[in-house]
Simulated assay, not measured.
Amino acid sequence: MKTRLLHLKNINCDFCADTIERAVNSLSGVIECQVNVDLKQAMVQYNPQLIMLATIQSALAKAGYEVELLTEHTNPLTS
């Protein structure tokens, strides 16, 4: 599993957060997506063998959100 922290440039409200979480959580291979509106960030846990980060970013762009990768983490418990 991998965890990525994404900066969401144009998120302003809880409706945006719900839209993003629904869009990303619906993707096969995504374990969890949590959005923090105040920090303008999304934390995404996913299985890189099932989905590429580019696919997640594409889904966010399709939903109307600009994304910038902040960090990459590997879960030591599942690696």
Rank of each mutant, 00 (worst) to 15 (best):
C33V: 01
N47S: 15
E66S: 04
Q34K: 14
Q49V: 06
A54N: 09
V24A: 01
N36C: 10
H73A: 14
L8N: 02
L27T: 15
S28R: 10
T19L: 07
Q57A: 05
G29S: 09
E21S: 12
L70W: 02
V44I: 13
C13M: 06
D38L: 08
M1G: 09
A61D: 08
V30Y: 02
C16V: 03
T74M: 05
A23M: 06
R4W: 01
L39F: 00
H73K: 15
M1K: 14
Q49N: 14
V35C: 02
Q34P: 01
T55Q: 07
Q41Y: 03
N10F: 07
I31D: 11
T19K: 12
L8G: 01
L60A: 01
C16I: 02
Y46Q: 05
T55G: 06
L5I: 15
V35W: 15
P48T: 04
K40H: 06
G29H: 09
V35P: 03
S26M: 07
E72Y: 10
T71D: 14
S79I: 15
T3Y: 08
R22S: 13
D38M: 06
N75R: 13
E66F: 03
T74N: 08
F15N: 12
L6R: 00
T71K: 14
Q41P: 05
I31S: 10
N36V: 02
Y65M: 15
P48E: 06
T19F: 01
E32G: 06
T3S: 11
M1Y: 14
L77Q: 13
E66W: 03
C33M: 03
E68N: 10
M52V: 07
A59F: 05
G29R: 12
L6C: 01
L39Q: 06
N75F: 06
Q41K: 08
T55F: 01
S28V: 10
N25S: 09
T71S: 15
E21K: 11
C16T: 05
S26N: 13
N75A: 08
V24C: 00
H7G: 05
F15W: 09
R22A: 15
P48V: 09
N25D: 04
G64S: 02
C16H: 10
L69V: 05
A59V: 06
E72V: 12
P48Y: 09
A59W: 09
